[in-house]
Design a protein around this nucleic acid. Sequence first.
DNA 1: TGTAGGCAAAATCCATGCGACGT
DNA 2: ACGTCGCATGGATTTTGCCT
Length: 742
Amino acid sequence: MPEVRFWLLDVMDAGEAVDLWGLGEDGRRLMIEVPFRSYFYLVPSSDYVKVKGAQEVDMFRMGKRVRCLRVEAQDDPSKEAEEMMSRGLGDAYGYDIRRSDLFLISTGLRPSAWTAAEAERVSSGAYDVYRSTGPPRSLEDRKDVPRIRILSFDPIYISRNASPRPERDPVAAVSIYDGSSAKTIAGDEQYVLRSFVEEVMRADPDVILGFQSNRVHWNYLSRRAENSGLRFSLGRDGSEPHGSVYGHVSIRGRANVDLSEFVDEVPEVKLERLEELSKYLGIEAPREAPEYFEIGELWEKDRRKLVEYFEWRVRAMFDVFSAISDYVFNLSSITGLPPDHVLTAATGFKVENYLMRFAELEARELIPPRKETRHVTYQGGIVLQPKPGLHRGIAVLDFKSMYPSIIIKYNISLETVDEGGSLRSGPPGFLPRALRRLLDERSRAREEEARYPEGSSERKVLDAKQRALKRIANATYGYTGWSGARWYAPHVAAAITAKGREVISSVISKAGEMGLEVIYGDTDSVFVSHDEGKVRELLRWVEESLGLEVKLEKIYRGVLFTEAKKRYAGITEDGELDVVGLEAVRGDWSEVAKRAQMNVLEVLLREESPERAEETAREWIRRVRAGNVPLKDLIIWKQLTKPIDEYEATAPHAVVAREMREKGWDVRIGDKVGFIVVKGAGKLHERVKPYFEVTADQVDWDYYAEKQVAAACGRVLEAVGVDESKLLSASKGMSLEEFFGK
DNA sequence: TGTAGGCAAAATCCATGCGACGT
DNA sequence: ACGTCGCATGGATTTTGCCT
């Protein structure tokens, strides 16, 4: 029988079989049908329990060997397993895993990686169809990525002074880009939608890129297509996009990637906009991008400019994808989640999918069913009270991957921690073994990476791989404390943090004994006076007596602390400024306050002149009082974290969101609401307006001077003995009213 | 379809107390 | 003498977004 080799793109449930979609070695696209039956394990309640057709197998439960029955499901494994349990036949495992997931978990096939299968060709057309004649297997050693065809798209909807709504507003145009030239299909809506479908079928992409496509566009376009009686055939087999589990949209035979979801992987990007993401990745973005509320107007007044912008967007999506695709594909093959699902899936599910694969394929550990469990909190890391002021010559030491290392070193796992929290000795547990594999693979990737020349594509791929492995390893501790996890184990999470507190405490005491001054510390880090010899000795001591790796992360020429934990700013020997936790790095402060604070910190740390820093702050306050700041620097962005009507307190951003909703703007959970504070009486929430409605004469400049700029600057100046009130009073200058009022 | 806990800060909420005022 | 209205005050609560 001939063997077909292909790069696995997606898996689809097909009743008695699963359909594997892939890119063939010969460059042709293909679909292979593989027969597959769902199955689950039953730990029988007694030796007399028999299940027809079931196979006896040895598995492990919490590290203990158990005899199990592997039961092939006739139809619905959940129903059949639950029925057996209710009849008292035993406990069932692995019955609530989606078929396509179970297929990947049990066969060890990896999406976004090479696969081989014995198969016969059934038909040949736009893509080849095969039927497998033997079990497919993963080609673990093959690491190249085939040439992938990509198409990006971005639709333009038209509505005036409100968000477009699919039941009302038509699709005016769709910009697309296939790597050669961007174009925009415009005209009558029927024509636009039909041409879009034709373009997709003609380009036949493996990956379709969009921004907010899962949340907005597929639903919008599908509804408009339905509305005009058009079949929206975008799948390789001509099927329409369909809602998959949890808000993700599936397009058969292609990977539907919503790039906006990548923002969750990058905490540095504070606003979920293509411009922000592009800038972060070093992709050129237009200096003045139109905002969503201007689109309707621009379509009427300056269509050329609008189209130019949308064509920039589809090209930028291409660039974004080429910057992140190695990472996405690696994350996909490590976790076993298909490339279009892996960004949509929350962290916990990424970890869980990896653990399930490890459980079934390597540990032979039974996979517990997901159940609703009450959330239990437990104690976390130690945070030291910082010594306030400006310190010179400070070394920052931190543990390398502290929690993963602790889990492995102290063998902390479900099998080794009892409910009381005490540790038992025993063979390496499930969690440590699963982590060990991730970390070993990561070291291998890093070693291999070093063998390739800087800038080579191999190096880039391996770097993406090691980052993806680190991401999963670091999230594993948190996973054990997540009440939604299959392997939810708060006592295990608590044992991990307890060990963490123990080791960091011993480092702190040792540093003190050695005569190093400890300035601050948080969870896995300590800030100490930088005495080179002693620091080196301390590092050696930690590695020898604790068996954990600590590194000299940074040396600050100067570092500034206030009395607050988790907030500081430092300057390194080579003049690089770090700002941590302070307003300047927060997404919910106005740009003017952030810039002013950053400016003050620069003067404080670079010039070490509190006087000049104070003067800098005064200048900013004067500028703001004079109203000499562009409006966009006054916007305060806050995320809507729940439905507008569920807020117990009258939060300013919720008030603005409600107002926007009433005017027809689509404001949803997760959206960031931008507002500006305007003049007026009463509470703050009575003086806020959507940022795009505010004019300069309405702005409450005093609010920005006092509650934003002075507050942010005062916070850092307080560390060098300058009082915020002094900052305000001296620069305020008495108004005439105040003067005569006295 | 939610990795975790620890933390700062702002705005709002709410109980409390005080004085002024009317009956 | 008593009730209550308005207002200030200060602590508790709500909310967000950061750090590791």
